[in-house]
Each structure stands twice: as structure tokens, then as C-alpha cells.
């Protein structure tokens, strides 16, 4: 018998190790569940890490109110299937409280408001560690992220003053009020996630696969028809054959033209892709340091 683990087996083992380590080091962890493939993979890994015991922490979803209906349906079904508690924070609640203010203009994005609701929910739930599906290959600010990422009492990330992280020794020590973000799939690439989904036969929301949808092309970003999107003068919806590479708010997440209606075709498409998966995210395009700035303020 060969004593060699494939790269996927090694990455899985590493993620499971991180989950177990965090649960031992923190009192009240939670999984940040966005509804996308990375956080679905995260839930699957957590399930494997603690089997036959239940996943020993809840899921937290920040609902912007601008989600794809397919995402919400899938989320509720997944929580049932894994028998795990689902905690939901509504951006609308923060707006009602006056702690968040809706963007002005025709098509406001609630993407930046998520961070506010998230921090409020973390405080309310007394969560001292939040697992995220962030990967270092996604974006250049994320390339410097730790597995155990320290946040001050305002939930802020200080990229220049991160704790060195050596070997497999993770330091989750913190003062009262401080917290951690934990990223078990830091070392995975988009391709690794897709291959793992195939290997483990993990179910995904239907919108990851090619389907027909009414779309408007706004400056190269293919936006879906939704109650949160008002057409600009001269724009009109057209039915297109598309799928999504990442999931976010309907107001900012762009689709891609695609015929990939099953996992093998999606993987082929990912392998041939010439744009990063966040390339269709209007939120990252705001400035060169957009992600870094949002992360510092407490974004995932």
C-alpha cells in the first residue's frame, strides 16, 4: 500500500485539523455561511471532522435581503440535512436600527453593510471565533491571511501586525472582547474546491450550473433580473444561458455565459477559465485595495 496522500487528501486533512483545533481553543465558534460553494464545502469538512458527533457549532448567515432565492432555499435544506442550528442576521434589521445606512442611488448594494450586521451578530451571539471559507488564492489581500486571524475588539484586521504562524501550531489566545476568524481552506484553490466537491459528491445550489435567466449586461457585468435591480435608461433584460462562478448579492454578482450544466463541465470550464472567479464581482473593482480595506473593517 502506498503511503502517499494526494493533494486533496492533504488539504482535507489540514482543514479537519484546523476545525478540531479551533473548537478546542475557542468557547463559542460559528461557521459564516454565505451559501456559496466554499462555505458549503466548509460545512461538509466540519461534518467529517467531528463525525459521529454532530457539528458542535451553529451556522451564521448574513442575509442582505438581496439574495438569490435558490441560495436561501438551499441554505435551509442544508441546515436540516446536517442537523445544525442556523442563526441569521438581517442587514434590514441593522438599517431599521439605524446602525447601517442604505447606499444612495438607483441600485444600492448592501455588500459593505454586511460587515456591520456581521459584527453586530457576532457580538450578540458572543461568538469568539468565526470560520470562513476565504481562500488565499482569491484575492491579493487574502494571500497574507492567517489560518487563525486575530481581530481586535472592533472586529478589525491589522494586516501589518499579524501573529506569525508556524508549523501546525495555532495561537488562539486573545483578550476579552477580541475574536478570531478561522480559515480552514486557506490553502485551497478554486480548482481544488471543485475537485473536492466532485470527489465527495457534495450537493450545490442549482445556480452554479448553466440555466436560462433574464440578464442585463451592465458595463460587462451580467446582472440577473431581480426586484433589487432597476434598469437604467436604454437597458433591457434578455434571456441568456448563464451560470454563476461565485454567489453574492443579486445586485453585484455577475453571471458568466456558460453551457456547463453538470459538475464535469464546470470543472472543465474552471480549468480553461482566463479570468479569476472574483473577476465578475463589481465590489472588488471599486479600487485596487478594495478587498484589503473591507477586510480591515471586519469583512469576511
Amino acid at each position: 500500500m502506498s503511503h502517499k496522500l494526494s493533494h486533496l487528501e492533504q488539504l482535507e486533512s489540514e482543514a479537519i485539523f484546523i476545525f478540531r483545533e479551533a473548537v478546542e481553543q475557542f468557547e463559542n465558534p460559528v461557521i459564516l455561511f454565505s451559501g456559496g460553494k466554499d462555505s458549503i464545502t466548509l460545512v461538509h469538512l466540519a461534518y467529517k471532522a467531528f463525525f459521529p458527533a454532530k457539528i458542535p457549532f451553529p451556522l451564521l448567515h448574513i442575509d442582505t435581503g438581496h439574495n438569490f432565492p435558490e441560495t436561501l432555499e438551499f441554505r435551509d435544506e442544508l441546515a436540516k440535512r446536517y442537523n445544525v442550528k442556523l442563526d441569521i442576521g438581517y442587514v434590514q434589521d441593522s438599517i431599521n436600527r439605524g446602525t447601517a445606512v442604505e447606499e444612495k442611488g438607483l441600485n444600492p448594494s448592501r455588500n459593505t453593510l454586511q460587515s456591520i450586521t456581521l459584527l453586530e451578530k457576532l457580538e450578540e451571539g458572543k461568538y469568539d471565533a468565526a470560520f470562513g471559507g476565504g481562500r488565499r488564492d482569491e484575492e491579493k489581500a487574502r494571500a497574507k491571511e492567517r489560518f487563525f486571524s486575530h481581530r481586535d475588539e472592533f472586529g478589525q484586521w491589522d494586516p501589518k501586525n499579524q501573529r506569525p504562524e508556524l508549523w501546525n501550531l495555532f495561537n488562539g489566545k486573545k483578550a476579552q472582547g477580541e475574536s478570531f476568524r478561522v480559515f480552514p481552506i486557506s490553502n485551497w484553490t478554486e480548482m481544488d474546491v471543485w475537485q473536492y466537491i466532485k470527489k465527495e459528491n457534495i450537493a450545490l445550489p442549482s445556480i452554479y450550473f448553466a440555466h436560462d435567466r433574464n440578464i442585463v449586461n451592465r458595463g460587462g457585468v451580467l446582472l440577473a433580473e431581480s426586484p433589487y435591480n432597476t434598469l437604467l435608461p436604454g437597458e433591457k433584460y434578455e434571456q441568456m444561458h448563464i451560470r454563476y462562478r461565485t454567489l453574492g448579492c443579486m445586485t453585484i454578482t455577475g453571471a458568466i455565459y456558460s453551457d456547463a450544466d453538470n459538475l464535469d463541465k464546470v470543472i472543465e470550464e474552471v480549468a480553461a477559465a482566463r479570468e479569476t472567479e472574483r473577476g465578475n464581482r463589481a465590489d472588488d473593482k471599486r479600487s485596487e485595495a478594495a478587498m484589503e480595506d473591507r477586510k480591515k473593517q471586519g469583512y469576511f
Partner: peptide, 29 residues
Amino acid sequence: LLTDGLKAEREQGITIDVAYRYFATPKRK
């Protein structure tokens, strides 16, 4: 410039922290 992730690094043209990069060939990740 591909590997300089943080604002300060781009401004100063230096790398100030460990950054992780990924690539794969058919043989290895």
C-alpha cells in the same frame, strides 16, 4: 506586482509579510 498584496507594499515596492501563492501542473500542486 503580482505578489505584492498590501497597499503599503505596493507603495514602497517591498514585500513585508509572508504571502502564499498557488499554482499547479498536471503532476503537482
